[in-house]
Design a protein around this nucleic acid. Structure first.
Lengths: 96, 96
DNA sequence: ACAGGTGTTATCAAATTTGATAACTTTCAA
DNA sequence: TTGAAAGTTATCAAATTTGATAACACCTGT
Protein backbone atom coordinates (compact mmCIF):
# COMPACT_ATOMS: atom_id res chain seq x y z
CA UNK A 1 0.00 0.00 0.00
CA UNK A 2 1.51 3.27 -1.03
CA UNK A 3 -0.61 5.91 0.56
CA UNK A 4 -2.01 4.71 3.83
CA UNK A 5 -3.29 8.09 4.86
CA UNK A 6 -5.39 8.30 1.75
CA UNK A 7 -6.68 4.77 2.20
CA UNK A 8 -7.71 5.57 5.71
CA UNK A 9 -9.38 8.76 4.65
CA UNK A 10 -11.28 6.89 1.95
CA UNK A 11 -12.46 4.22 4.35
CA UNK A 12 -13.71 6.87 6.72
CA UNK A 13 -15.38 8.80 3.98
CA UNK A 14 -17.18 5.73 2.70
CA UNK A 15 -18.79 5.23 6.07
CA UNK A 16 -20.81 8.29 5.28
CA UNK A 17 -23.88 7.06 3.49
CA UNK A 18 -24.20 9.98 1.13
CA UNK A 19 -20.61 9.78 0.05
CA UNK A 20 -20.79 6.03 -0.40
CA UNK A 21 -23.87 6.35 -2.55
CA UNK A 22 -22.12 8.79 -4.82
CA UNK A 23 -19.06 6.59 -4.97
CA UNK A 24 -21.07 3.52 -5.87
CA UNK A 25 -23.06 5.36 -8.47
CA UNK A 26 -20.08 6.95 -10.18
CA UNK A 27 -17.83 3.91 -10.14
CA UNK A 28 -19.37 2.32 -13.23
CA UNK A 29 -19.13 5.61 -15.06
CA UNK A 30 -15.41 5.79 -14.45
CA UNK A 31 -15.07 2.25 -15.65
CA UNK A 32 -16.92 3.19 -18.81
CA UNK A 33 -14.65 6.17 -19.33
CA UNK A 34 -11.56 4.02 -19.01
CA UNK A 35 -12.93 1.67 -21.63
CA UNK A 36 -13.73 4.50 -24.00
CA UNK A 37 -10.29 6.04 -23.67
CA UNK A 38 -8.69 2.67 -24.19
CA UNK A 39 -10.73 2.11 -27.34
CA UNK A 40 -9.66 5.44 -28.78
CA UNK A 41 -5.99 5.44 -27.85
CA UNK A 42 -5.56 1.84 -28.97
CA UNK A 43 -6.35 3.04 -32.46
CA UNK A 44 -4.10 6.05 -32.21
CA UNK A 45 -6.99 8.45 -32.68
CA UNK A 46 -6.95 11.89 -31.11
CA UNK A 47 -9.92 13.50 -29.44
CA UNK A 48 -10.13 15.98 -32.27
CA UNK A 49 -10.12 13.28 -34.94
CA UNK A 50 -12.78 11.35 -33.10
CA UNK A 51 -14.85 14.47 -32.62
CA UNK A 52 -14.74 15.10 -36.35
CA UNK A 53 -16.00 11.62 -37.12
CA UNK A 54 -18.75 11.92 -34.54
CA UNK A 55 -19.70 15.35 -35.77
CA UNK A 56 -18.92 17.22 -32.60
CA UNK A 57 -16.05 19.08 -30.92
CA UNK A 58 -12.98 17.91 -29.11
CA UNK A 59 -13.98 19.67 -25.92
CA UNK A 60 -17.05 17.49 -25.73
CA UNK A 61 -14.97 14.37 -26.14
CA UNK A 62 -12.71 15.53 -23.35
CA UNK A 63 -15.71 16.19 -21.14
CA UNK A 64 -17.04 12.73 -21.84
CA UNK A 65 -13.71 11.06 -21.12
CA UNK A 66 -12.41 13.10 -18.22
CA UNK A 67 -14.85 15.87 -17.34
CA UNK A 68 -15.01 16.59 -13.64
CA UNK A 69 -18.59 17.61 -13.16
CA UNK A 70 -20.38 15.62 -15.81
CA UNK A 71 -22.06 12.41 -14.89
CA UNK A 72 -24.04 10.08 -17.10
CA UNK A 73 -23.82 9.99 -20.88
CA UNK A 74 -26.71 8.76 -22.97
CA UNK A 75 -26.74 5.47 -24.81
CA UNK A 76 -26.68 7.45 -28.02
CA UNK A 77 -23.46 9.22 -27.16
CA UNK A 78 -21.77 6.01 -26.12
CA UNK A 79 -22.94 4.37 -29.34
CA UNK A 80 -21.70 7.19 -31.53
CA UNK A 81 -18.32 7.15 -29.83
CA UNK A 82 -18.01 3.40 -30.30
CA UNK A 83 -19.28 3.43 -33.87
CA UNK A 84 -16.76 6.11 -34.83
CA UNK A 85 -14.01 3.69 -33.80
CA UNK A 86 -15.56 0.66 -35.44
CA UNK A 87 -17.24 -0.87 -32.45
CA UNK A 88 -20.77 -1.61 -31.39
CA UNK A 89 -22.05 -1.33 -27.86
CA UNK A 90 -23.21 -4.39 -26.00
CA UNK A 91 -24.87 -3.90 -22.65
CA UNK A 92 -24.82 -6.88 -20.32
CA UNK A 93 -26.40 -7.29 -16.91
CA UNK A 94 -24.66 -9.27 -14.20
CA UNK A 95 -25.98 -10.26 -10.81
CA UNK A 96 -24.58 -8.11 -8.06
CA UNK B 1 -41.33 -16.41 -43.89
CA UNK B 2 -44.69 -15.47 -42.47
CA UNK B 3 -45.36 -12.03 -43.82
CA UNK B 4 -43.78 -11.55 -47.20
CA UNK B 5 -45.51 -8.28 -47.85
CA UNK B 6 -44.03 -6.80 -44.73
CA UNK B 7 -40.59 -8.13 -45.52
CA UNK B 8 -40.74 -6.59 -48.94
CA UNK B 9 -41.91 -3.34 -47.53
CA UNK B 10 -39.08 -3.34 -45.04
CA UNK B 11 -36.49 -4.05 -47.69
CA UNK B 12 -37.80 -1.19 -49.77
CA UNK B 13 -37.90 1.14 -46.81
CA UNK B 14 -34.32 0.34 -45.86
CA UNK B 15 -33.14 1.41 -49.27
CA UNK B 16 -33.99 4.89 -48.16
CA UNK B 17 -30.88 6.22 -46.51
CA UNK B 18 -32.62 8.28 -43.88
CA UNK B 19 -34.84 5.43 -42.84
CA UNK B 20 -31.93 3.04 -42.75
CA UNK B 21 -29.92 5.35 -40.58
CA UNK B 22 -32.75 5.59 -38.09
CA UNK B 23 -33.21 1.86 -38.15
CA UNK B 24 -29.54 1.19 -37.52
CA UNK B 25 -29.39 3.71 -34.73
CA UNK B 26 -32.49 2.45 -32.96
CA UNK B 27 -31.75 -1.24 -33.29
CA UNK B 28 -29.43 -1.38 -30.29
CA UNK B 29 -31.95 0.52 -28.22
CA UNK B 30 -34.63 -2.04 -28.94
CA UNK B 31 -32.22 -4.77 -28.00
CA UNK B 32 -31.55 -3.00 -24.73
CA UNK B 33 -35.27 -2.69 -24.08
CA UNK B 34 -35.78 -6.37 -24.62
CA UNK B 35 -33.06 -7.14 -22.14
CA UNK B 36 -34.52 -4.81 -19.55
CA UNK B 37 -37.99 -6.28 -19.91
CA UNK B 38 -36.59 -9.76 -19.65
CA UNK B 39 -34.71 -8.86 -16.48
CA UNK B 40 -37.84 -7.50 -14.86
CA UNK B 41 -40.36 -10.14 -15.92
CA UNK B 42 -37.98 -12.96 -15.07
CA UNK B 43 -38.21 -11.82 -11.48
CA UNK B 44 -41.97 -11.43 -11.61
CA UNK B 45 -41.75 -7.72 -10.88
CA UNK B 46 -44.36 -5.33 -12.21
CA UNK B 47 -43.57 -1.93 -13.66
CA UNK B 48 -45.20 -0.32 -10.66
CA UNK B 49 -43.13 -2.31 -8.19
CA UNK B 50 -39.95 -1.52 -10.05
CA UNK B 51 -40.86 2.14 -10.26
CA UNK B 52 -41.32 2.21 -6.49
CA UNK B 53 -37.87 0.73 -5.92
CA UNK B 54 -36.30 3.13 -8.39
CA UNK B 55 -38.14 6.06 -6.87
CA UNK B 56 -40.12 6.97 -9.95
CA UNK B 57 -43.46 6.25 -11.61
CA UNK B 58 -44.72 3.33 -13.59
CA UNK B 59 -45.42 5.49 -16.62
CA UNK B 60 -41.75 6.28 -16.85
CA UNK B 61 -40.86 2.62 -16.72
CA UNK B 62 -43.31 1.93 -19.50
CA UNK B 63 -41.83 4.73 -21.55
CA UNK B 64 -38.36 3.32 -21.04
CA UNK B 65 -39.42 -0.20 -22.00
CA UNK B 66 -41.86 0.46 -24.80
CA UNK B 67 -42.28 4.18 -25.42
CA UNK B 68 -42.81 5.03 -29.05
CA UNK B 69 -41.16 8.40 -29.32
CA UNK B 70 -38.40 8.18 -26.75
CA UNK B 71 -34.94 7.29 -27.86
CA UNK B 72 -31.82 7.01 -25.73
CA UNK B 73 -31.82 6.53 -21.98
CA UNK B 74 -28.90 7.68 -19.88
CA UNK B 75 -26.41 5.36 -18.28
CA UNK B 76 -27.82 6.42 -14.94
CA UNK B 77 -31.33 5.30 -15.79
CA UNK B 78 -30.14 1.95 -17.08
CA UNK B 79 -28.04 1.50 -13.95
CA UNK B 80 -30.89 2.33 -11.61
CA UNK B 81 -33.20 -0.05 -13.42
CA UNK B 82 -30.64 -2.84 -13.21
CA UNK B 83 -29.71 -2.15 -9.60
CA UNK B 84 -33.36 -2.25 -8.56
CA UNK B 85 -33.47 -5.82 -9.83
CA UNK B 86 -30.15 -6.84 -8.34
CA UNK B 87 -27.96 -6.44 -11.38
CA UNK B 88 -25.07 -4.28 -12.38
CA UNK B 89 -24.49 -2.91 -15.84
CA UNK B 90 -21.53 -3.99 -17.86
CA UNK B 91 -20.85 -2.20 -21.13
CA UNK B 92 -18.78 -4.08 -23.66
CA UNK B 93 -17.50 -2.97 -27.04
CA UNK B 94 -17.31 -5.39 -29.91
CA UNK B 95 -15.81 -4.86 -33.34
CA UNK B 96 -18.45 -4.26 -35.98
C1' DA C 1 -70.75 -7.02 -16.90
C1' DC C 2 -67.62 -5.66 -13.48
C1' DA C 3 -63.52 -4.67 -10.92
C1' DG C 4 -58.66 -4.90 -10.15
C1' DG C 5 -54.25 -5.24 -11.77
C1' DT C 6 -50.95 -4.20 -15.44
C1' DG C 7 -49.24 -1.58 -18.98
C1' DT C 8 -49.60 2.46 -22.31
C1' DT C 9 -49.99 7.17 -23.86
C1' DA C 10 -50.19 12.26 -23.41
C1' DT C 11 -48.57 16.33 -21.38
C1' DC C 12 -45.89 19.65 -18.95
C1' DA C 13 -42.21 21.29 -16.10
C1' DA C 14 -37.65 20.24 -14.23
C1' DA C 15 -33.27 18.33 -14.65
C1' DT C 16 -29.54 16.83 -17.32
C1' DT C 17 -26.86 16.13 -21.35
C1' DT C 18 -24.97 17.83 -25.55
C1' DG C 19 -23.12 21.25 -29.01
C1' DA C 20 -20.36 25.11 -29.84
C1' DT C 21 -16.88 28.48 -28.98
C1' DA C 22 -12.95 30.23 -26.74
C1' DA C 23 -9.11 30.38 -23.65
C1' DC C 24 -5.83 27.83 -21.23
C1' DT C 25 -2.09 24.19 -19.93
C1' DT C 26 1.23 20.82 -21.11
C1' DT C 27 4.24 18.46 -23.93
C1' DC C 28 7.36 17.90 -27.55
C1' DA C 29 9.95 18.85 -31.57
C1' DA C 30 12.29 22.29 -34.51
C1' DT D 1 12.37 29.99 -27.43
C1' DT D 2 8.81 29.36 -30.51
C1' DG D 3 5.09 26.98 -32.38
C1' DA D 4 2.05 23.28 -33.03
C1' DA D 5 -0.47 19.33 -31.30
C1' DA D 6 -3.25 17.27 -27.72
C1' DG D 7 -6.11 17.66 -24.01
C1' DT D 8 -8.70 20.36 -20.35
C1' DT D 9 -11.85 23.68 -18.49
C1' DA D 10 -15.48 27.27 -18.56
C1' DT D 11 -19.66 28.99 -20.35
C1' DC D 12 -24.01 29.42 -22.61
C1' DA D 13 -27.77 27.99 -25.44
C1' DA D 14 -30.16 24.08 -27.50
C1' DA D 15 -31.72 19.54 -27.35
C1' DT D 16 -33.06 15.58 -24.91
C1' DT D 17 -34.25 12.88 -21.02
C1' DT D 18 -36.64 12.33 -16.77
C1' DG D 19 -40.32 13.02 -13.14
C1' DA D 20 -45.00 13.55 -12.15
C1' DT D 21 -49.86 13.33 -12.92
C1' DA D 22 -53.82 11.83 -15.20
C1' DA D 23 -56.52 9.33 -18.32
C1' DC D 24 -56.99 5.45 -21.16
C1' DA D 25 -56.62 0.45 -22.95
C1' DC D 26 -56.18 -4.33 -22.11
C1' DC D 27 -56.73 -8.47 -19.94
C1' DT D 28 -58.37 -11.88 -16.68
C1' DG D 29 -61.00 -13.92 -13.15
C1' DT D 30 -65.26 -13.59 -10.66
Amino acid sequence: MDDLSFENFKDEALKNTAVKKEYDALGPVFELRRKLIKLRTAKGVTQEQLARIMGTNKSNISRLESGENISYPTFKTISKYAAALGYKVDIEFRPV
